[in-house]
């Protein structure tokens, strides 16, 4: 992910995501979506559109998997 594409950044562990989609509901700028491809468990994991993340962290808050998401923010 290129720095500068947004104030925030989401890193997704594709193999830990179970594709429940709660983060896509919670995302305010709506920059998360479920991927068309499947992971090894047969889930459509979430993916970041690549720009527009505000770094608010709500996706992390609602995500049931401890390690599926990591949220970063542009240093002030």
């Amino acid at each position: 992910m290129k720095p500068g594409a947004g104030r925030g950044l989401v890193e997704i562990n594709v193999e830990e995501c179970k594709g429940c989609g709660l983060c896509t509901d919670a995302c305010i700028p709506k920059v998360l979506r479920l991927s068309a491809s499947l992971n090894r468990y047969g889930y459509h994991p979430v993916e970041y559109e690549g720009r527009g993340c505000s770094g608010c962290g709500l996706c992390f808050v609602v995500c049931p998997e401890p390690g599926a998401l990591r949220v970063l923010k542009l240093a002030a």
């Binding site: 720095p3 925030g8 950044l9 770094g55 962290g57 992390f60 808050v61 401890p66 390690g67 998401l69 990591r70 949220v71 970063l72 923010k73 542009l74 240093a75």
Partner: peptide, 9 residues
């Protein structure tokens, strides 16, 4: 210039 704000505990 990005810092982690949320990650696995």
């Amino acid at each position: 210039n990005y810092t982690t704000v949320h990650e696995k505990s």
